[in-house]
């Protein structure tokens, strides 16, 4: 974390990522003539947009040394809840969105309190949350794929454009900027990084680690809810399986962006580029007519590779070690 002047280290990482991104685009253009079409790029944009929105909030958990695996379920639930509020209870669409976001706050608060006050590993708490929230989403929607017919204003969030650019892009852009500023230029951002870097030292310097962490999970949960609302509006659908598996895309994006899962550092811009890459990877698999089964495989491999690279592990050395494991003579 260097402040005041440009962050050269992060810039290098971002720049390197950008280079890989360009290479991917060139590669995809060469592989498939369908890649560089408006239709296809719009498709990529949508998925990047949703992952991007989630990422802006979900990145704080890894920065403090935790993780939030419940974002996908929260997003799905948010879409369903918003629909119920608008179309079953007939609330105004804005009010419905506000209530949905408040529910997001509550979920995040529970996640945060259980991890900090009861010292349960974050991944267990959020994995459990993922499970029960999915159940709640199924229960509320009765497992149906509900088509959202109205109100028009709600549906407009996903489809209408301003200056020729779709609204969700603006939402993502605003959240990225806000999140970036929050992380790099506010007291809260400093506290998050400090808690992730060395909790004891942070505490002795006057930071309240528990409070910081609880806020982190609330932020994560709220951005996931926003993503869920955008998704519901975009797809005109409320469905419990709408975002299934997105948490892995989100983690992949964050990890590609150079954020370690051990805490103490993080880059919102890096994660954004990561989100675009995840979008391209998924799109590339589609364009190559690879079955959707390749998607989790690619994600898994990318996560592992990015984590290992983030740790600064020398690849040749590791291969050497790997080989030595198979040699019967080497007794360690």
């Amino acid at each position: 974390m260097k402040t005041g002047t440009l962050d050269w280290r992060q810039l290098m990482v971002d720049f390197r990522l950008f280079g890989i991104l360009l290479l991917m685009m060139v590669g995809l253009t060469l592989i498939s003539d369908r890649f560089l079409t408006v239709d296809n790029l719009t498709n990529v944009l949508w998925s990047v947009c949703l992952i991007g929105i989630m990422t802006t909030g979900a990145i704080y958990a890894p920065i403090t040394g935790g993780i939030d695996l419940s974002v996908a379920s929260i997003a799905a639930l948010a879409g369903i809840v918003a629909n119920v509020l608008m179309n079953v209870y007939g609330l105004h669409w804005l009010l419905s969105i506000v209530i949905t976001l408040l529910i997001g706050v509550l979920i995040g608060w529970v996640n945060g309190v259980v991890t900090t006050k009861f010292l349960v590993p974050a991944f267990i708490v959020t994995m459990a949350a993922k499970t029960y929230l999915f159940g709640v989403a199924m229960l509320v929607s009765n497992g149906d794929q509900i088509t959202i017919m109205q109100p028009k204003e709600f549906l407009a969030i996903g489809v209408s454009k301003f200056l020729g650019i779709p609204i969700p892009i603006y939402i993502m852009a605003v959240l990225v900027i806000v999140s970036h500023i929050l992380l790099k230029h506010t007291v809260f951002g400093r506290q998050c990084i400090a808690v992730g870097a060395n909790e004891v030292s942070a505490k002795l310097s006057g930071v309240n680690p528990d409070r910081t962490r609880i806020i982190v999970y609330i932020i994560s949960s709220v951005t996931a809810s926003i993503a869920g609302i955008v998704m519901a509006s975009l797809t005109q659908q409320a469905y419990a399986m709408n975002a299934t598996g997105y948490e892995f895309d989100v983690i992949t994006a964050i990890v590609i962006g150079g954020t370690s899962l051990m805490g103490g550092n993080g880059s919102v811009t890096g994660a954004l580029i990561g989100a675009v890459m995840v979008g391209f990877i998924n799109n590339g698999l589609n364009l190559l007519d690879m079955p959707s089964a390749y998607h989790p495989i690619a994600t898994g491999i990318v996560i592992l590779a990015a984590l290992i690279l983030n740790q600064g592990v020398s690849i040749p050395k590791s291969i050497q070690y790997l080989l030595s494991c198979f040699k019967p003579a080497s007794v360690k």
């Binding site: 899962l261 989790p296 984590l307």
Partner: peptide, 20 residues
């Protein structure tokens, strides 16, 4: 060997194996 968190390693292999 890489000292990576258990949950992320096994989540990654989970994805890979489910796809395979």
């Amino acid at each position: 060997h890489f000292k990576l968190p258990e949950f992320i390693v096994t989540l990654a292999t989970r994805g890979i194996l489910a796809g395979l």
